[in-house]
Amino acid sequence: MHTESVIFSFFLIFTGAALLATLSLYFRQPLLLAYIVLGAILGPFGLEWVVDTELLADVAHVGIIFLLFLIGLDMQPSHLLQMLRKGYMVAFISSVAFALLGFVVGYGFGFSMIESLIIGASTMFSSTIIGIKLLPTTVLHHKQTGELVVGLLLLQDLLAIILLTLLTTLGQQFSQGLELSLSADLLISLGALPMVMLAALGFVRWVLLPLIKRFDRFHEYIFLLALGWCLGLAELAHSIGLSAEIGAFIAGVSLASSLISQYIAINLKPIRDFFLVLFFFSIGASFNFPLMHSIWFQCLVLATLVVTIKPVVFGWIIRPICKSKATSWEVGFRLGQTSEFSILIATLAASSMLISESASLLIQATAILTFVASSYLVVWNFKSPIAVKDHLRHD
């Protein structure tokens, strides 16, 4: 893509996003829906004005990295361990229940065993972007709702990383005609996780914080140092078999105990929002609408079951550790969708020839439908930065 076309694409995306966002606010609709609809209109299956969706998806991925970095900046290491201890059993039970739901639906509609297993795996996860983006800052920092949502999403992200690594291994072995087996690379990557965390904490204590203290008068330097630390650790994690998201989160956690963490968080939020607009646009732009006629009913059934059953299951499982029944239900509704990881799973499995294009489209369409439906439920009924009712709008 030439420079001129990149600039023109950005012009179309952000001008169009501003126009549709204005309409969304007038008609009290979630802004996330405007970005997805814009992608569908301008993308290769719409007007074909923006066609290089792979480039946009790569650029938009930076938004997820910054999102995880900002989450980490709000998590003291001791607080994080406490949350993970509270939520690991909930994450395990809910993952099994949702995987079974997806498997039964997939197998019931005639998909093969391996396709049904992957469809089931894709329904285990909830969206980190939706979950965090719709949490008010005060809830994210100080309320049990925020602690449970973030803790469960982090555990799911770890599980998603394991699954993506496993799918990569299976896809490589399947394409080479080898006997399927669990790769030692997976175990090595997981074993490296605590080492990366300890190394990050040490580097921050002995290198980054002294530099920040010495040059804290130069705000531009602090900004560049934070960006370099976030993206550098993200790339390191990716290079050893983890994900860039986990690396960015570790980078944030390692800085969370410092006095400079909230200053960094405030200054990076506009950059995060810029890339997240691109992320949701790329979801709408990359969706293959012409193929929907063959599986629209399956998509509708699976999406409906996810949106209705996930809040109930989460609300029931979380209730014993919640302060109130209302909190458990709110957490359930905030996690009542599939995930951006579901789209990654579908893409990876399809490219590895583990599933058909129809199965991949089912997973992606379910993700988009549940993104939209879940966002509606949250912004109409719970506090969020983009709530459609004035008394629910908080940040």
Rank of each mutant, 00 (worst) to 15 (best):
F314K: 04
A350M: 08
V6C: 07
A99I: 07
L182S: 08
L68P: 01
G315T: 05
L32A: 13
L335F: 01
L70C: 08
L153D: 07
A387G: 08
L42P: 02
I64T: 11
M353F: 12
A303Y: 00
A373V: 09
L68I: 15
A226T: 05
P320S: 09
L186M: 14
P290E: 06
Q262C: 02
T53Q: 07
W296K: 09
G228C: 10
G241M: 10
S24G: 12
V150C: 06
A21G: 03
S282Q: 04
V277P: 01
L31M: 09
V105R: 02
G232S: 05
S127E: 03
Q76K: 13
V50P: 00
G110C: 12
M75V: 03
V379S: 03
T308K: 00
L259N: 10
T168A: 11
I345L: 14
S112M: 03
G177M: 06
A60P: 02
V388I: 15
S243W: 01
S328T: 12
H142G: 04
I250Q: 01
F111K: 05
D390T: 13
I246N: 03
S254K: 11
L225V: 10
A17I: 14
I271V: 14
E147V: 10
A192H: 07
R205E: 12
L369I: 08
D157W: 00
S189Q: 08
V388T: 15
L101R: 04
L33T: 12
L80T: 02
T137S: 15
Y26L: 07
L291D: 05
L20N: 00
D216K: 10
W49D: 02
L362I: 14
L300P: 02
A192Y: 13
L268I: 11
Q156R: 07
F223P: 00
I212Q: 01
L134H: 11
H394W: 11
L163A: 13
G191C: 10
V96F: 12
E235Q: 06
I114D: 11
A57I: 13
V207G: 06
D395V: 09
L242T: 02
P210Y: 14
